[in-house]
Structure formats: C-alpha cells, structure tokens
Design a binder for these strands. Structure first.
Lengths: 203, 203
DNA sequence: CGGCGCACTAAGCGCCCGCTTACACTAGTC
DNA sequence: GACTAGTGTAAGCGGGCGCTTAGTGCGCCG
C-alpha cells in the first residue's frame, strides 16, 4: 500500500490526501527532477485534479520544501541519536555510517530528492535546509575529531574526512536501486568497514 | 577569457560561437539545472539572439549531449590512460584517484553537469553516455581486482569497492568550489590516501 | 563584381506551465 | 434543516517555453 508507506514517512502530515501528494511528488521529483515535473503529474499520480494540490500546499515549491525539510530532519535525528551516546568515537562513527547509508539505500527515492533537488528550493527555504546540512556535517566532524583524540583515527584534515564520509553515504542515493541485490543494512555494514579503514582506524 | 577556457575544454568544436554556447550552457545547467535553464538564458549569456542557438545545435537537448558526451569521454580517457600502464595496481589506482578527483574539482562546473544532469538526456543519447559510464566503472573495478590478486588490497565485494571509489570522486563535483581553499591536485592526493586505506592497502 | 552560403536577427507560433476562480459535495453541529 | 468548514472539481488565465520562419549582412570565390 502506498498510503502505508506515506504514513510511515510522514506520520505527522494530515490529512492523508496531503501525504498522497507528497508521495506522488517524491516519486516524480526523484525520477525526472523538480523542474521536469508538472503539478498535473503530481495531482494525477495522487488521483486528484490539478487544483486539489493547492488545497493542501500553497505552491509546488512548498511541496518540495515539505519533502526536503522532513528528510533533512530525519537524517539529522538519525546522526544525532548516535553521536552523543556513551560509546567510543569509533563505535559511534561505525553506527552513524551504518544507519546513514542504510537510510539512503532504503529510502533512496526520498533521499534522491533530499540530496539532489536542493537547488530548486526558494532562497529562504534553501537556507533552512542548508542549516540542517551544516549541523549534520558538524556532528560527523566532531565524532571524527573525538576519534582522533582517542587515538583510534588518523586523518590529515577533519573537514575533508567528514566530507568524504558523507559523500559515500549521500552518493548511495544516486546509484542504489531495489535491484542492487544487497539489503540496506548489509550495505551499511559494508560501508562502515570501508569508512573505518579510510579514517585509519586501528584494528 | 572565457573563449580561452572553452577552447581548452572543447578544442575540436568549431566555430568558436558553438563553444561559447556550450560554455554558457554549462554554466547555466550547473547552477540551475537543465530544465530550469531556458534557451534564451543560454543564447543571452553567449551574446546572441535566441535563434542563433539553432544554427549550431538542433535542440537544447543536443547541447546537453555535446557537453555530457565530451565530459564522459574525457574522464574515461583519463582513467584508461593510467589503468593499462606497467605499474603496480596500487600505484595505478592511486594515480587514477588523484587524476579523477582533481578533474572533478578543477572542472567542477562541467563535472556537475556531466554527473548530475544525465537524466535530462533523451533515451538514445542517455544510452551512449551510460555505456561510457559502465566502461569507466569496469576499468576501476579491474584495477582493484588486480590489486587484490597482487595482495595489496583487501576488499569484500569488488563492485561495492569500485562504486565507493567513484562515489568519492563524483561527489567532489557537488560540493567543491573555488573557495574551498585546497587545490584540485592537493585534494586528489589527499583523497588517494583515503582510498588506498579504504581498500585495505598494505603500507 | 555578381552570386553563394554561412552566421545571425526580429518576430512570432503553438503549446503547456503554475496557479486562480467559481462552484459543488459532504459531514458535523446546533 | 440551515450553517459552516473542509475537500474537492471544471474551466481557464496570463505568461513563458522550445523552436521556426523569413529575411539580412558579409566574406569569399570565379
């Protein structure tokens, strides 16, 4: 059921018709891109007339923002929920990569919109998600820094290392498909090994 | 001079007005995306009337294809020119990553179009560049495989390892800017270290 | 020097876009 | 049973899109 998926992705969005529109928009934006998608496409895929979209969202851009904002909040929450635990930096980073990569694989359709349709946001809305992105990067950078202090990582440049870690995760959304033949969880674990080695983690 | 840059990027394209159009298109596509760019934008930025575009290219999509195809051929050539040398797999991979990353940093505007505007290509043209992309991935995978045989790399899954290596390089185009404060060459060297460690290279 | 062909422009065609307007149906409330 | 709020539709407006057409200026060749 698509309605079940949309309820899982955006449980707080009401009514269900608004969620159906978001799901239809996600699928179109991910496949064709924001600008190549028409409001008629979205409304049609949600089983409504074009005008019905404007009952729930003030504009096409507002729909993109709802999707993008929610996605960024989810990934930030995911990263923060691990970053401040009482474990070694090494273990925390491993879990962050596992979860971050698994999310980008499992939710690759949403993730593609979240990561690659940013530029289509109006300036004000863009700034809101840009701030969330900076926070995500900072959390990862801090955990890497703690690992360096603990002596478990060896990196030249914290900023570059954090970018490389996030690049690996983000880019999963670009190429992952359900036919990849590897579960999101398994891919996450595999990437975590690669990342720990990349950061020079002591075995 | 912009004409100097376009001559460097596409020396075989004639006349110069066609190159000017390609350069203007690259800049618009990179900043706003293919679908958000109008033919009037491109022609205007190249100092021409809208109709002049159609003297040199049969359509807006043909312009994108010219840019995308050329970029993919350049990166494939770059990778192949190193892959078949008479060096250790480890050294060849190091050089491939250095060059691939440096190219995506130095040419980040072109690279952004090459890597992120693929989906806007018509089906037939898409297939042409998809083939080039498969060849690039295969070359990298083969070098990694040779490194494993030589005993210098240790990886679980060749396909995943190759994807991770390319992800790191490709994603540079997404975030690199001239204000990054690190030269393309330096970034390439730094990434090469990260990649070799990621693949479990023996020191 | 006449004629040709390349590179270019002014004007505009037909289409489809995002969004609005005017109106209809339904469920809940007193 | 009248009223309201919420959710939807049919129709269409104004504008900008990709691209075409008709015509112009100019350098080059016999």
């Amino acid at each position: 059921m698509t309605s079940a998926l949309s309820a899982e992705l955006w449980p707080e969005v009401q009514p269900e018709a608004a969620r159906r529109l978001m799901l239809a928009a996600v699928e179109s934006f991910a496949e064709r891109g924001y600008h190549a998608t028409t409001t008629r496409d979205i409304a049609g895929a949600a089983g409504m007339s074009p005008a019905a979209l404007y009952v729930h969202f003030p504009s096409k851009a507002a729909l993109l923002f709802a999707i993008s904002h929610s996605g960024h909040e989810q990934t930030l929450a995911l990263v923060e929920s691990v970053a401040y635990r009482d474990d070694s930096a090494r273990d925390r980073l491993r879990m962050i990569v596992e979860d971050f990569v698994a999310w980008h694989a499992r939710r690759h359709t949403v993730a593609r919109v979240v990561q690659y349709e940013l530029q289509a946001l109006p300036k004000k809305e863009y700034e809101v998600v840009a701030d969330l992105r900076r926070r995500i990067e900072r959390v990862v950078r801090d955990v890497i820094a703690q690992g360096v202090e603990e002596g478990s990582f060896g990196v030249n440049d914290l900023r570059t290392a954090a970018r490389a870690v996030l690049s690996l995760g983000v880019d999963v959304a670009r190429w992952y498909s359900d036919r990849t033949g590897k579960t999101p969880k398994a891919l996450g674990r595999e990437y975590a090994v690669l990342v720990l080695r990349m950061l020079g983690a002591t075995v």
